[in-house]
Design a protein around this nucleic acid. Structure first.
Lengths: 350, 350
DNA sequence: CTGAAAGCGCTTACAG
DNA sequence: CTGAAAGCGCTTACAG
């Protein structure tokens, strides 16, 4: 198990450690012949530099941290998991390791700080979905390079990778309108999350533009709940709206998990989808294709969000003095069976 | 950003580095008073030992690797992802970091070896689902502590964490039989995977025991496909069996993804579930509750598999000379709406 | 172009 | 119980 070190290689190649190091790190100023001898020795001995030693010498280890709120692991819909996988993929491609940490909620101050931040295991980190303010404050104090994904906080300046929720939402709404719907309901959980707020804003804008609906009209057709978006919330919200004297003919759910609950509500009330009620989701998680009829929704390029986050972070790591950057990733409307219209050909959108 | 080292703490506390180290590592032989002084200095300075330095000095870093075949990331059903999350959870609890690696398929020998194995970033690893033989050989050659999860290879001796597929399969079959089904079909993809073979074996055993069916009878009711289990395969298989002159009244799918395809087939043939056709799955992935009717299936404690894998590995790391161990994790039959019978109360089985 | 030396921040025998 | 010293395996000025 004990294997060769740089010293062994140097000895075998008849050069100094420094020279081997130069070769390993692909520096110039090594004669072709020396380089060759070293390379041969490395090959022969199957030498590979220890990560920990480089890390210590360089004061950086080529690892990035990924912080995800505990709750998002519980959620069955693997939304953030896909972002994580995308991040891990891009990180690996760029030669970085990814370390994962679950942010506790509630967060206790020094106790719950991710260990990899304390022991300097990571060079920087990605925070997805949301994070305790106290943790964010710590990150800022320690000046740890950081990028926020699908999350932002007023006046918290750092790199961001965000979803173009507003455009996605308006596109979805316009589709519904093009199908002739006039009374469209909006059902949302997680109603304080910036992404949900933007989707809501899209809903409102389109309603106003098209029908000049009064705020009051729109409010009647809106169900907002601060609790985590879920099928339960979707069901509640849909039931509430559908029992209105003048119920909506279409419901735009803030995400697919919520839409699942709208299906349940429709079923309970004996409404058939899409004939009696059209439903539109947001996210395009796996569940959407399992529903019957399958759900029209707004696709989010989840893996891509993760990849962009890594690119953003690596960029920051390499150029610390750059201005902060925010990347907005577009969405794609996917028409399936839950609201009529011509189906979008099914391609694998990662 | 530059922060205190053990030397700074020593200076502040008026002791030597060695003493600080002893305190940090909670060793005996430090006078209460000295310990206190050191602790205070650590607190005051918010000192935390660098991971890389400990790693180098100790020749082990408290990280474990998790190897997953590339294909399993593509699969939309997050089966292995949940195992990974469980592993990550337990690892964190035990103070280990988890590093992830995607095993390429096909695997090219030295090129595709996970880097964390080469650069000694991990102390041991967990391999889930399957892995290239050449990689397994490398692991064995290098004597890297390793545990295989939901996978085994004849004569590959190492620690294992496996699913009790045989019992799970027989329990599911017995349930179907208790409902009066006599002609039960078995539809499988990934038919060479040890877990699928065991489920198949359970199917055969029960069929033989109960009806003394001839191998021939059973074979007629069996659809096996070596390709990755999927809805497509499930649909094909179900269609094939359902078009038999004497079609099955129930189908046992090798996993839930396959069962999804069986639903499609039933729908195409105008069969209603569970009245015309009962369907039983295996895995209990999220999709199963989204189906209509929701799928009766055999629950696998995915996170628990991951956790046990970590425990097994840590155990191995701490006691290298122990005998090899195999842990078999039981399953749980969950009755929902796809085959009749009294519903299992829905609890969150993690 | 190459080597000797110091340093990264820890741990661990070994003295005392 | 405590400290001085060496070592873990790299990288990086600095000489030459």
């Amino acid at each position: 198990m004990m294997s060769y070190t740089i010293r062994d290689v140097a000895q075998r190649a008849g050069v100094s450690q420094s020279t081997v190091s130069l070769v390993i790190n692909d520096r110039t100023n090594v004669s072709p012949d020396t380089r060759r001898r070293v390379l041969v020795a490395i090959e022969d001995m199957e030498y590979y530099p220890r990560h920990s030693a480089r890390h210590l010498a360089l004061a950086k280890g080529g690892s990035i941290g990924f912080v995800l709120t505990e709750q998002f692991f519980r959620v069955s819909e693997p939304f953030y998991t896909k972002i994580l996988l995308g991040a891990e993929f891009e990180a690996a491609k760029q030669g970085f390791y990814t370390l994962l940490s679950r942010a506790k909620e509630p967060f206790e101050y020094p106790k719950d700080i991710p260990r990899f931040l304390l022991d300097r295991s990571v060079d920087g980190l990605i925070v997805a979905g949301r994070a305790p303010k106290r943790l964010l404050k710590f990150i800022k104090e320690k000046k740890i390079p950081c990028v926020l994904v699908d999350f932002k906080l007023p006046s918290y300046n750092t790199n961001h990778v965000l979803i173009d929720n507003l455009s996605g939402s308006k596109e979805a709404m316009n589709h519904l309108i093009s199908l002739g719907h006039q009374r469209i309901g909006f059902v949302a959980g997680s109603s304080t999350h910036p992404s949900i707020l933007e989707r809501y804003e899209g809903f409102r804008q389109v309603m106003k533009e098209h029908y000049g609906n009064s705020i009051n009209d729109i409010d009647k057709l809106t169900y907002l709940n601060e609790e985590e978006a879920s099928p339960q919330i979707g069901r509640e919200g849909a039931l509430e709206l559908l029992r209105l004297p003048d119920p909506p003919t279409a419901i735009f759910a803030c995400n697919d998990a919520t839409a699942v609950g709208c299906y349940k509500a429709a079923k309970e009330l004996g409404l058939s989808i899409p004939d009696d009620l059209a439903i539109m989701g947001f996210d395009d998680v796996d569940a959407s294709t399992h529903l019957d009829p399958d759900l029209s929704t707004v696709h989010i390029y989840k893996a891509e969000l993760g990849k962009e986050a890594v690119r953003s972070l690596v960029d920051r790591l390499e150029n610390p003095d750059q201005p902060l950057k925010t990347k907005i990733i577009s969405t794609k409307l996917i028409i399936r069976g839950s609201c009529g219209g011509e189906r979008t050909p099914e391609i694998n959108y990662f």
